[in-house]
Design a protein around this nucleic acid. Structure first.
Length: 139
DNA sequence: GCCAACGTTGGC
DNA sequence: GCCAACGTTGGC
């Protein structure tokens, strides 16, 4: 089962807004990077993703679930190749896991979050996923 | 096909 | 506000 991490600036789209959308979720659109697009296209319905607040907060705020696999991004111009997925909030992190905490954990030093800081949709390994859930107080 | 210039992201 | 990383654009 693959795991993911999706970044959003809370000014533009926050975890709280995501939660307010409930079980229907919200379209995750606006990705304009080919590496991130490829990751969106690999996502399957039912996959889990960390919801990370970039710039403000700089922490993993919760866990989301992919509820609809990739489809053409409604915010793209006609003919452009960009795709979107639909995600819903699953559970908040009891204790949000900060970037500082991730940097301080030696086992997480190879995370894409640290190595490719500008990539907005990235894979997370099963080991990283488990450890971060534990750090966040999630059972 | 190379590379400089420029724009954007995102941490500090 | 600054700057590093990195993607994109455009001249040659």
């Amino acid at each position: 089962m693959p795991y993911w991490l999706m970044k959003s600036e809370p000014d533009a789209w926050s975890w709280q807004q995501q939660v307010s959308k409930g079980a229907k979720g919200e379209t995750w659109s606006g990705v304009r990077n080919h590496t991130a697009k490829l990751n969106l296209m690999k996502m399957k319905k039912g996959d889990s993703a960390f919801f990370y607040h970039s710039n403000i907060g700089k922490e993993i705020a919760g866990v989301a679930e992919i509820v609809r696999e990739h489809f053409p991004d409604p915010s793209a111009k006609p003919g452009e190749p960009w795709v979107a997925v639909q995600v819903k909030a699953l559970e908040p992190m009891p204790q949000p896991v900060t970037l500082a905490a991730i940097k301080a954990e030696a086992k997480l030093k190879d995370m894409a979050l640290l190595k490719q800081s500008r990539l907005s949709v990235q894979p997370v390994t099963a080991e990283e996923w488990k450890l971060i859930c534990k750090m966040g107080g999630m059972r």
